[in-house]
Amino acid sequence: MIEANAVYVIVMRELKKFVRERSRLVSTIARPLVWLFLVGGGMSRLVPTGRGVSYMQFIFPGILGMTILFSSIFSSISIIWDKEFGFMKEILVAPISRFSVVVGKATSGMLLSTIQSVIILAFFPVLGLSIGPLQIVGIVFVCAVLAFALSSFGIVLASFYDSYESFSVIMNFIVMPMFFLSGAMYPVKLMPPVLRYFTKVNPLTFGVDALKHLIYPLEKGPMSADFPFVIDVLIILAASLFFVTLGGKAFERKG
């Protein structure tokens, strides 16, 4: 059961606060750009990629994934702040289902992350990539689904933590490993078998992989996508459904 009024007003609140907090936008946009141009630019000289995409072009899908990962988790983690500062109780005693709250939060995370990833996407000409309008539609779609999945995942995390001290734990022990074990910075097929196992239980891997298909579809060889496109999309769709349901369940618990 989802109440549209509740989802609407929860989303509006997040958007309003996002617009008000300019510094948050600056930092979420700055991080991926630093990685793309400083790390990617530097590594491009070290990593010979032959005739295919350059290393900087190679990590572009991963950088989009990073943008989505950080902004989705950050958006969902705001639930911990809402608990800390008491506002969550205002929502929890309202006559709306817990699932509406989760859908509202996941939808706001999805919208904010997608907007930010589109801003990063706009840098593609600088990297010497050529992306057509149809590809862009596909990319925005994949970004939105991935953002919904990761925001829902963030809600599940947030439901286990009550204080903001846990924020750094989540960032250091969950978010950063997720980023490095997603094929964002190096191809999954070149990873040691143990690490490859971790990439396969990471929803970000499949989102980034789908973006690789869309951003450099003609690439063959080591830097190309690792899994079939259809599988990627099915997995991130399934992850969205799985985590939003789990989030609903996690919120359902009463003390």
């Binding site: 500062f85 008491g86 506002f87």
Partner: peptide
Amino acid sequence: GIVFQDSSLDKDL
């Protein structure tokens, strides 16, 4: 309707 012991307003709104 409830007024909780600790404020439950959103102070950034």
